[in-house]
Nucleic acid binder design. Sequence first.
DNA 1: AATCCCATTCTTGTATACAAAAAAGATTGA
DNA 2: TCAATCTTTTTTGTATACAAGAATGGGATT
Lengths: 236, 236
Amino acid sequence: MTKPRSKVRRAESLREALEGDIATGRYPAGTRLDEVTLANRFEVSRTPIREALIELSVAGLVEIRPRRGAFVREIGIPRLIEMFEVMAELEAMCGRLAARRIAPRELANLQAAHEACNLACEDGDPDAYFHANQTFHEAIYRASHNGFLADQARSLQNQLKVYRRLQLRVRNRVAMSLGEHQQIVDAIARGDAEAAADHLRQHVLIQGERFNDFVASVASHREETEAEQPLRSAAG
Amino acid sequence: MTKPRSKVRRAESLREALEGDIATGRYPAGTRLDEVTLANRFEVSRTPIREALIELSVAGLVEIRPRRGAFVREIGIPRLIEMFEVMAELEAMCGRLAARRIAPRELANLQAAHEACNLACEDGDPDAYFHANQTFHEAIYRASHNGFLADQARSLQNQLKVYRRLQLRVRNRVAMSLGEHQQIVDAIARGDAEAAADHLRQHVLIQGERFNDFVASVASHREETEAEQPLRSAAG
DNA sequence: AATCCCATTCTTGTATACAAAAAAGATTGA
DNA sequence: TCAATCTTTTTTGTATACAAGAATGGGATT
């Protein structure tokens, strides 16, 4: 058995597995998620698969078209920009609250996470940086001392994961990101709420813009061959 | 036939129905939502009921405890405060964007919605005001021209619906609310993004505080008889 | 009388069966 | 050869059946 750990609620682990498969690009945007195929793959019946797909659809990762099936959500560029806009504001809010409320131990965690980012950057490993970066932001979410806000931020970050990851491939982005992190840490450390909010907002908005550049370059290169299918090839 | 309209996807209409029942207090916080009971009530099998409950759990209205069942989420005061904190920021963001982006027709809609609130206030009908108020805020969501943000705001408003409604019972709250609306409309009309954001933020935060007052008075009155069960009696 | 343990019952979680809608394919006509 | 319609097949949505965990109640023991 591959997964003997989970006694109950198979749909939960299925959801996580599918979430991962979508994030890693195993199922690119637009892919049809066939219930029986998935059921065979995970060796369960259609029932828990359906439940997992429903969860993913409410979470926004999947779109269920009635009587048509479930598809990995194709997020068009306009909506993606909207999502980055919201993400920037949520992160800014986390930063503002964190600057006011962070505990010494949490600040130590944040600085440690920042250090980890530094190391990953020096190693030149974008994947390692991606994970360290997630930990860094998670530390800020926690330090906001607003559990609901943290949940919202995590959920949205999860939806944007694929695109944030792509964006790290952009030239010089990792080094830039690191510098922004430094400013964020400093602002939070000295309790400057508005500076923390501003730096975080910019940090995320820049990601959105850089991503936009990236997509634009891919799109213009692609226009010669394909019709305009938002992001299909970008995510694959 | 009670509901012949919906051809497909019974789970969707079930979710909406349950959402309504939770919002109106038919199922107060903490209530156990028994699958077979619901199945009998809606004259369907357990399958679509389960799917609806799963949707509600992801949306945050219901908590599913594995092998124990689904319960109407008991939102404790601390989390409720957190939620109002986030709601305030989302609405502020809607206002900021709306002030920059609103179209003449949308502004007319907003002013019309404000007028409707005025009328409901003069009639002294809190329920009518509640609905007019929702339309007012919806107009701002739309005017933000950020569909994703609007979705998030609606979703959170839906979760807070019960408590916002309660809060309108507080003395003088409706008249106060109306005055705040006027300031919001003015700020948006003259394109003052920061003023719109600030007024909306305050508008929501005050709701949270007033609600807090309300709960506090109920709670202190209750402490004499019951143990501290967050909000059970407040929602019933 | 109170407590602990076992059996029964109830409820959830999963599998399977069935119905209806949509997609695919074939056949017929122009 | 192409198009349109009818038929077949596939796939979703729902109902039902079954298994296992949790709750409940009764009986035995102290």
